[in-house]
């Protein structure tokens, strides 16, 4: 695991919540996102798998991925907010996730004798690489290619949810919401006082 300290120590994009960097609707949608904490679409069993998947795709220095990451994936499924397309080999996103999680757990039981969230870190990692390489073999996948599910749904949806969280913006030093106030200093190595300060080694 990564032992370095944070790149932007002390930076918290939420500190700007009540400054001109955030407008009313932004406060509303981010506030709402931060209240998400449990499954509304997924079953409890699926939720455990999803959270373990999040811990693998966006692993944290200290402990588990923020609960809002899995919760935002769940929220996307609950409202059925789609991307605008799907590959012919995948069913619609809700069905793909349901079938995908079931197949992952089936694959895990066949190989390691337990559900995904019960495996060790190393086993989880091996299993995900197997999906990525298209080497899943459980019949539970049916006609849905594990490789396409892995790329288009699993990694895509989890990363998109994680990087929609202020927590992730702090790690990256992203300025976060910016309206009505945007930025003044645009040149190399220039920052406004409302931007993150990078820790240089």
């Amino acid at each position: 695991m990564n032992n370095r300290g944070p790149r932007y120590p002390g930076y918290n994009v939420l500190d700007k919540r009540d400054t001109p960097s955030w407008n009313e609707i932004t406060r509303k949608v981010i506030d709402h996102r931060l209240t998400l904490d449990g499954p509304k679409f997924f079953t409890l069993e699926e939720w455990l798998t999803l959270r373990a998947l999040c811990d693998c795709i966006v692993p944290q220095r200290s402990g588990r991925a923020p609960v809002q990451c899995a919760a935002l994936v769940d929220h996307k499924m609950e409202l059925d907010q789609r991307d605008g397309f799907r590959p012919p080999s995948l069913p619609s996103q809700r069905e793909a996730w349901r079938r995908g999680i079931a197949a992952i757990n089936e694959e895990c039981r066949e190989r390691y004798g337990g559900a995904f969230h019960e495996l060790t870190g190393g086993q989880q990692d091996r299993l995900l690489r197997l999906l990525e390489e298209g080497e899943a073999s459980s019949p539970a996948w049916g006609d849905m290619p594990a490789k396409v599910f892995f790329k288009r749904r699993l990694v895509h949806d989890i990363a998109a949810a994680y990087y929609a969280l202020p927590h992730a913006w702090n790690e990256m030093g992203f300025g976060g919401p910016a309206s009505p106030r945007g930025y003044v200093r645009l040149d190399f190595n220039k920052r406004d006082r409302w931007e993150a300060i990078e820790q240089h080694d």
Binding site: I25, T26, R33, D83, G84, F85, P88, A178, S179
Partner: peptide
């Protein structure tokens, strides 16, 4: 309009479309 990528997906055409072929387009 919020300053937020996730929220602003509401601007995109996210109704279902099927996209295939050798270099399938990412639509939306």
């Amino acid at each position: 309009f919020a300053s937020d990528e996730h929220e602003q997906y509401k601007l995109y055409w996210t109704d279902e479309r099927i996209s295939g072929g050798e270099d399938a387009l990412e639509l939306g």
